[in-house]
Design a protein around this nucleic acid. Structure first.
Length: 157
DNA sequence: GCCAACGTTGGC
DNA sequence: GCCAACGTTGGC
């Protein structure tokens, strides 16, 4: 099983929006970055565990856990001229963009902030804490996953 | 194929 | 709101 972290701006789609979806499941559409797409297309498998990360907000950080429930398939929003994610270069016969379905598992007991993740030595190699990182989907190692769950249990000052 | 210009991301 | 970092575009 693999571990991942996926970012979303809570003003667009936050974890509370996910819990409000039917079945607490949603397709992760709108990813328009090739590196992120390739991970969804080639590597994300049913049962993989995913941290839900809130970006571009007051306290950026991990707010919950999700699970992959459907593996990569074409992102139909790329074909819809009404969608903000419309891409005229994505041909329905040869779709350019891919999404997966994810299901809510739980909120973390608190927000595990980016500031806190940056202070943890075990996590210093995570792409997330590196300067200038803009990837919206990234792999998390088993060690990093366990470390973050450990952090969740402790108070952060 | 290079690279400058431009648009976007996202922390602060 | 600012701006650094990065990806994409398009002229040449």
């Amino acid at each position: 099983m693999n571990y991942w972290l996926m970012k979303s701006e809570p003003s667009a789609f936050g974890i509370d929006d996910l819990t409000a979806m039917p079945g607490q499941t949603e397709h992760w559409d709108g990813v328009r970055n090739y590196q992120a797409r390739n991970m969804m297309r080639d590597q994300m498998k049913i049962g993989d565990q995913v941290f839900f990360y809130h970006s571009n907000c007051k306290i950026p950080g991990i707010v919950g856990i999700m699970e992959v429930v459907r593996e990569g398939y074409p992102d139909h929003t790329a074909f819809d001229p009404q969608s903000q994610y419309f891409d005229p270069k994505s041909d329905p016969k040869n779709p350019r963009w891919i999404m997966v379905d994810i299901k809510y598992v739980r909120h973390t007991s608190r927000v595990i902030s980016l500031a806190e993740l940056k202070e943890c030595e075990v996590l210093e190699n995570m792409q997330l804490v590196r300067k200038g990182n803009r990837l919206s989907i990234m792999p998390v190692t088993a060690e990093e996953w366990a470390m973050i769950l450990q952090l969740e249990k402790t108070a952060f000052q």
